[in-house]
């Protein structure tokens, strides 16, 4: 069963959302609950490099880091995935062999999505063929803002069809959707059209993931689940570099979606430097001493 009309028409009040976020973010997470959260966060990270200057060398370094960042604390979980551009999929795939870490690739003319549908589908086919475990697509924001919801939905559906069993994350690029009302509509549209995950941002547009946006998306996921019984995942991306913020997001997930979503199957962070800060915090918890970035590798 698909989402019903009232799910689309339900509006969002910005000020109230900000107040709700402030209240959620005022939760004080200490001691064991903090360590548990930090561990969980580590397992939810999609370690990301998405730059024009990315090279096989850079991707290999990142993959090495993904596989070994917990060397100091062998009990720590691995990150969930490494996220790269399509040409880097084979490199990452090889580097991450037997690590259990997934390879995610952006596709569909990332980050703008400005290409023909045919070209986008070709790109998806290519990365799937190259062995990507997950595909992060972007929606056509221009079409969305013009109100062409059907077109946006069809595109997502076609991409999903092309993905087959490969996990599809749909990037809404909320920074370009401007209003929270739009974020909610786009979230439901994406879930209705076959998204396995919905994701806030490409990281190339400011603002990227903001707490109000994430809350609205989580609420949409909850409503979709209550309506259809389908559990859709969530991935905030861009601008999440501090462990504290990540913990706050986890609180938001816990109090909006509950237990089932507190795992990497249904929640991810798209981030490049978050892992280091989480490691620093974990080290601090173990040693009782505040840490310096000098002791944590940059890759």
């Amino acid at each position: 069963m698909l989402a019903n009309k009232s799910m689309f028409s339900q509006t969002v009040d910005q000020v109230n959302v900000q107040e709700r976020v402030a209240r959620l973010f005022s939760r004080s997470i200490k001691k064991e609950s903090k360590v548990a959260a930090l561990n969980n966060i580590l397992s939810m990270i999609d370690l990301t490099t998405l730059e024009g200057k990315d090279s096989p060398g850079k991707v290999r370094q990142l993959c090495y880091k993904a596989a070994h960042l917990h060397n100091q604390f062998p009990d720590l979980p691995k990150v969930a995935a490494v996220c790269v551009f399509p040409p880097m999929v084979p490199v990452a795939k090889k580097a991450l062999r037997r690590t259990g870490i997934k390879v995610a690739s952006v596709a569909t003319a990332f980050p703008s999505g400005m290409s023909t549908l045919a070209a986008k589908l070709e790109e998806v086919k290519a990365v799937v063929g190259a062995g990507a475990d997950e595909v992060d697509m972007v929606i056509s924001r221009g079409a969305f803002l013009r109100g062409e919801y059907d077109r946006v939905g069809e595109e997502i559906a076609k991409v999903k069809e092309t993905c087959c069993e490969v996990h599809l994350k749909v990037i809404l690029e909320t920074g370009e959707l401007v209003t929270l009302d739009n974020v909610r509509i786009a979230s439901i549209l994406a879930m209705n059209s076959g998204a396995d995950f919905i994701k806030t941002s490409t990281g190339k547009v400011f603002p990227a993931a903001t707490p109000p946006v994430v809350l609205i998306m989580l609420e949409a996921i909850r409503d979709f689940y209550l309506q259809t019984g389908k559990k859709i995942g969530m991935k905030p991306a861009g601008g999440i570099s501090k462990a504290k913020l990540a913990v706050q997001y986890l609180v938001m997930v816990r109090e909006t979606l509950g237990q089932d979503w507190l795992c990497s199957e249904l929640f991810r962070f798209g981030a490049s430097s978050l892992a280091n800060d989480v490691l620093m915090q974990i080290t601090k918890q173990f040693t009782g001493v505040y840490q310096s970035t000098n002791y944590f590798s940059l890759d």
Partner: peptide
């Protein structure tokens, strides 16, 4: 929804 989570907040007095 299942809000009885494994992850419980430590007391923060």
């Amino acid at each position: 929804m299942n809000y009885k989570t494994d992850w419980v907040y430590n007391p923060a007095p």
